[in-house]
């Protein structure tokens, strides 16, 4: 699965989690929680759970704590994909 495909899927998930229109908000690898009003510590938990479910992966707290931008999340998902 390419980074673009993963990013596209994560964008869809974010639209669900943050209850926003996909076309309204531009999500790039550089997007951070500061860019999206609805993205707080609580919705972050829901985001991670939704991403784990979609890609059938499981993150550790240490991995989650290291995330800064959407691109980090994409890279993490990519790293956990079966070879």
């Amino acid at each position: 699965m390419s980074r673009e495909v993963i990013l596209g899927d994560i964008r869809e998930i974010m639209a669900d989690v943050f209850d926003m229109d996909v076309d309204d908000v531009v999500v790039t690898p550089d997007t951070t929680a500061d860019d999206i009003e609805e993205w707080d510590s609580l919705s972050h938990i829901r985001l991670i759970v939704a991403v784990e479910r979609r890609f059938k992966v499981k993150f550790t707290n240490a991995e989650i704590e290291r995330l800064r931008r959407v691109g980090d999340l994409v890279a993490l998902v990519e790293a956990k994909q079966p070879a």
């Binding site: 669900d16 989690v17 209850d19 829901r46 759970v49 939704a50 479910r53």
Partner: peptide, 11 residues
């Protein structure tokens, strides 16, 4: 519904 859809519905 999943937990995110429930939040939308709650709103």
């Amino acid at each position: 519904l999943d937990e995110n859809q429930l939040v939308s519905l709650a709103r």
